[in-house]
Amino acid sequence: MSDPELVYSSHVFCCTNLRPEGAKRGSCAAKGSEKLRNYMKARAKELGLEPKVRINSAGCLERCELGPALVIYPEGVWYTFASQEDIDEILQTHVIEGGRVERLMLMPDQTEPRPEARSVAPA
């Protein structure tokens, strides 16, 4: 038996986890993830990506120290993001064009944020 057809061509999970202030690992919510997730959802709708693209909130994705973090399936590519411009670039390059935004990608063994990913402060 083969796998069923995908329900969504892209399914984006944005961490909106909130840890107490001063938590060692920080939290994506404290870095603006909820506001940026809301922007991503609205922008995807504006671009006509629905209903084949779904943007969801997620509890902790266990990468908050690198975050805000999101993961896009079915590819399983992880990103950090800090601004609406980052969200626009992820939607255009990854979701629409099928490419990758290398400067924002999170690698499986990564333990420190990439300096180039923090070019814009959280909105």
Rank of each mutant, 00 (worst) to 15 (best):
M1E: 11
M1S: 14
S2A: 14
D3Y: 14
D3S: 14
P4N: 06
L6R: 15
Y8K: 15
Y8S: 15
S10F: 02
S10N: 15
V12Q: 00
V12W: 13
F13R: 13
F13V: 03
C14R: 00
T16K: 02
E21N: 04
G22S: 03
G22E: 03
A23M: 05
K24H: 01
K24G: 00
G26T: 12
S27D: 03
S27I: 05
A29R: 00
A30G: 09
K31S: 07
K31V: 02
L36P: 03
R37H: 10
R37Q: 14
N38T: 06
Y39C: 06
M40G: 09
K41P: 00
K41E: 13
A42T: 08
R43P: 01
R43W: 01
R43E: 13
A44P: 01
A44C: 12
G48Q: 10
E50C: 06
V53T: 15
V53R: 12
R54G: 07
I55E: 06
I55H: 08
I55Q: 04
N56T: 14
N56M: 06
N56L: 02
S57K: 12
S57A: 15
A58T: 07
A58S: 15
A58F: 07
G59T: 02
G59H: 04
L61A: 10
L61T: 09
E62M: 08
E65I: 09
E65F: 10
L66C: 04
G67R: 06
P68F: 00
A69S: 15
L70K: 06
I72F: 09
I72C: 06
P74G: 07
E75H: 12
E75W: 11
T80R: 10
T80Q: 08
T80I: 03
T80N: 13
F81P: 05
F81A: 01
A82N: 11
A82F: 12
S83K: 08
S83R: 02
Q84T: 11
E85S: 06
D86L: 01
D86Q: 02
D88I: 09
D88F: 08
D88Q: 03
E89N: 12
I90R: 05
L91K: 02
T93G: 01
T93V: 15
H94A: 07
H94Y: 03
V95R: 01
I96H: 01
E97H: 13
G98A: 08
R100N: 13
R100V: 14
V101N: 12
R103P: 04
L106T: 05
M107L: 15
P108D: 05
D109V: 00
Q110H: 04
Q110N: 00
T111A: 11
T111F: 01
T111D: 07
E112A: 03
E112L: 12
P113R: 02
R114E: 04
P115F: 08
E116S: 13
A117I: 00
R118D: 09
A121F: 13
P122Y: 13
P122G: 11
